[in-house]
């Protein structure tokens, strides 16, 4: 990707941020389902542009994660409450974060991981019927496991086979590429790395495992 294209994406992203501010302002003045729908679209496109920029920076050898401790309870709350549910959608997000109280905190890049998880949640909301589950648990053998599962048709076989394509024709598949990148970039001094795991189990199951 050329610096010119990257610059244009950056500008577009800033424009979207501004649009978001105005939409919030408009919502404050008179809330309506159309405005909520617009906010959801702006948030989704904005997130994709940020992901695209991260991929560009990774290609330029310029993407560096900011790993620090974060309170998991606070983090999980932020991940789920910021998601704008499409108006009229029957689906809801059910959080299973009981393990969080015991785990307390974990070291990771909260900004990038939040993007990954929110993208997964938005996907699940698009494909799921009514119940989306968001869970956090300790991973056996060390690590932290975030899971997003839906009750939809599940991942197509090519996606399970690791193809970086689309979960449906309306998406480019960038979400998964980005998720893999961010997972892999999470590392520990003893050489462990993060990963994502995809599976079907009465719906699609997306897992992000952090070292």
């Amino acid at each position: 990707m050329s610096p010119l294209i990257a610059g244009a994406i950056h500008d577009a992203k800033n424009g979207l941020n501004l649009l978001n501010t105005w939409l919030e302002e408009a919502r404050r003045a008179s809330p309506s389902p159309a405005i909520d729908e617009a906010r959801a679209v702006a948030a989704r496109v904005g997130a994709q542009l940020v992901e695209l920029l991260a991929l560009y920076r990774a290609g330029e050898n310029n993407l560096r994660l900011a790993i620090e401790d974060h309170d998991l309870m606070d983090f999980c709350q932020e991940v789920t409450t910021e998601i704008i549910l499409p108006p009229g959608s029957k689906a809801h997000i059910e959080s299973d974060v009981d393990a969080v109280a015991m785990l307390g905190a974990w070291a990771f890049d909260a900004y990038q991981v939040k993007l990954v998880l929110q993208e997964a949640l938005r996907n699940a909301l698009r494909h799921g019927k009514d119940c989306i589950r968001f869970a956090v648990a300790a991973q056996a053998g060390g690590g932290l496991r975030f899971t997003v599962s839906d009750d939809g048709p599940g991942f197509p076989q090519e996606v399970l086979d690791g193809e970086a394509r689309a979960m449906d024709s309306a998406s480019s598949g960038i979400g998964l590429v980005f998720a893999r990148l961010i997972a892999e970039r999470h590392a520990t001094p003893d050489g462990r790395h993060g990963r994502i795991e995809l599976a079907n189990n009465s719906g699609a199951v997306f897992a992000l495992v952090l070292p």
Partner: peptide
């Protein structure tokens, strides 16, 4: 218990 930069 876990890897974290400040403790490292």
């Amino acid at each position: 218990q876990r890897a974290t930069p400040w403790a490292s």
